[in-house]
Design a protein around this nucleic acid. Structure first.
Length: 490
RNA sequence: GUCUCCUUCGUCUAGUGGUUAGGACACCGGGUUUUCAUCCCGGCAACGGGGGUUCAAUUCCCCCAGGAGAUGCCA
């Protein structure tokens, strides 16, 4: 039987790293097996439903470049793929369970349940199954008060439920330890996750459930549901969780765990995918760079770890820098242009002149970026003459204003006609001049760098000047000389 | 509280009944360099503890500790 797996997000919040890791593992598993990857939207919680969260699911996967074989926008044999559009199905099965004696209507009010929990205190034993024994009179009373019942599963009280997990092996749980009589169908007619996922996974012929380990405790319940329906459960594969630095489940306070936020911060999707794929999974002991295409071939769930993994921004950053360096000039420019535009560094649309400068800058900045967003600060000086000179920065440490002026004047002289010489020739010219005066090349270049780029840190100077042209370069030098002579003279 | 899962360098991991326990990130040091970055070289650093099984355990078993997750008319 061909593999069919699904990623089943709930549109109640933004897609985060953990969810996307689950989606990716499902996707890669399906691809590696020549199977089918399904996206199913579990929108059964109308309290927390958020349309923006649904859009975020689409945006996230579009950015990552991951698509599904069946799901929203891709009709398949088991449509619709929104659970809110499949209510009759769940309701029918819930009723069937009641008729079979595997479930029952429970009439408790929210207040009563709250009171029950209050009484239980810290212990949190869960529902006390009181609804199983309500008398006809009690039920009639509830009904007369307009209380709408839920349908609860009549869980086994004795024995144990066992299931095989691809990663964990055999997992056992005593039936009495399973959440007591969980709600299957809410009073609003919507199913809970437990019912909906079992019904849909069966109907959509899902062969493997790859989901986070937080589901382990309810897996035996799901197995009991499959049995009650007389269905064969799919294979289970519970993925280790992704934690934050503090060892806690990854959440908002750990930074940008919303995937779209990674995009906004200048990460490349291929870097994120590569890194996230290595959270709880490794191909071997030497290889860690993988394209999506390679992961589609090489992913093997047998190699998934049991232990949770800590999300390390430093390593992601390293991957990101690597992937940026792999970009061609053209690719990098396309990636960076919108960022420069929203930073106001270049026009919208970008002018030919700006594009030309950017093109020349690509090779100079590529090695210097860990995030695409850094481009704005690195290249800004190439696009504006209005530079934020700071006097204390202009004068190198251990030098006076007067000495700086001298060095800059010398630099100005040496710069003359630089465009007609190669970078190597220019460097040699400066090096000779520096040696004559017993200076280091760097010391001679620093005042010039400050004048041209307004920063102690910049792309290579000669290349940068070439992009600016001699006129602008000389003008900047003169501006700074002026500043140093007046301000610095005090 | 109860139940479940987990445990190799700080982090991600490889690994085997007998290895100098390997790699990567981070960190530290050095080199190249025009600043920064890249790049190169080197270094630091781990089998949670206790019992077994065995000629031999990081590896197999048990216990403990620690960590995490679940315990909803959320998923």
């Amino acid at each position: 039987m061909s593999v069919r797996v699904r990623y089943a997000p709930s549109p109640t919040g933004l897609q985060h790293i953990g969810g996307v890791r689950t989606a990716l593992f499902n996707y890669f598993f399906a691809r590696s097996q020549g199977g089918t990857f399904i996206l199913r939207v579990e929108d059964t919680d109308r309290e927390r439903y958020d349309e923006r969260a649904l859009q975020d699911i689409y945006d996230t996967f579009a950015w990552l470049g991951i698509s599904w074989d069946e799901g929203p926008g891709v009709d398949g044999p088991h449509a619709p793929y929104f659970q809110s559009q499949r209510l009759e199905l769940y309701q029918g099965y819930a009723r069937q369970l009641v008729e079979q004696g595997n479930a029952y209507y429970a009439y408790d009010t929210p207040e009563e349940l709250a009171a029950m929990r209050e009484e239980q205190g810290e212990k949190g034993a869960g529902y006390d199954r009181r609804g199983r024994n309500y008398t006809a009179e009690q039920i009639a009373d509830y009904q007369s008060r307009g209380v709408v019942p839920v349908i609860r599963f009549k869980g086994l009280l004795e024995g144990e439920t066992v299931f095989e997990d691809l990663i964990l092996g055999r997992v056992k749980k005593k039936n009495k330890d399973i959440t007591p009589d969980p709600v299957l169908l809410k009073s609003d007619g919507f199913p809970t996750y437990h019912l909906a996922n079992v019904v849909d996974d069966h109907h959509m012929q899902i062969t493997h459930i790859l989901r986070a380990q937080e589901w382990i405790p309810s897996a035996p319940l799901h197995v009991q549901l499959y049995r009650a329906f007389g269905w064969e459960p799919p294979a289970f594969c519970h993925l280790p969780m992704v934690m934050g630095k503090d060892g806690q489940k990854l959440s908002k306070r750990h930074g940008s765990t919303s995937v779209i936020e990674f995009r906004n911060q200048g990460y490349l999707p291929e870097a994120l995918i590569n890194y996230v794929s290595l959270l709880g999974w490794a191909y071997d002991d030497k290889r860690e760079f993988f394209t999506v295409g390679e992961l589609e071939q090489l992913f093997d769930p047998q190699k998934i770890n049991k232990a949770p993994a800590v999300f390390d921004y430093k390593k992601l950053e390293w991957f990101n820098g690597n992937y940026i360096r792999q970009k061609s000039d053209e690719e990098l420019e396309a990636l960076v242009t919108p960022i420069l535009q929203s930073a106001g560094v270049v026009s919208t649309p970008i002018t030919d002149n700006e594009a030309a400068i950017l093109h020349g800058a690509s090779p100079l900045v590529r090695e210097r970026m860990k995030y695409l967003t850094e481009a704005a600060d690195i290249v800004r000086f190439l696009f504006t003459d209005d530079l934020p000179y700071q006097m204390d920065e202009l004068i190198p440490k251990n030098l006076s204003a007067a000495q700086t002026v001298q060095l800059l004047e010398l630099g100005r002289e040496l710069v003359g006609g630089f465009a007609s010489r190669s970078d190597e020739e220019n460097e040699e010219r400066f090096r000779l001049a520096a040696e004559e005066r017993d200076l280091k090349l760097g010391s001679l270049l620093m005042p010039l760098r400050m004048a041209v780029t307004a920063s102690r840190v910049s792309p290579p100077l000669f290349g940068s000047m070439r992009l600016l042209g001699e006129t602008r370069v000389l003008k900047r030098i003169d501006t700074v000389l002026q500043l140093l002579r007046t301000e610095g003279g005090k």
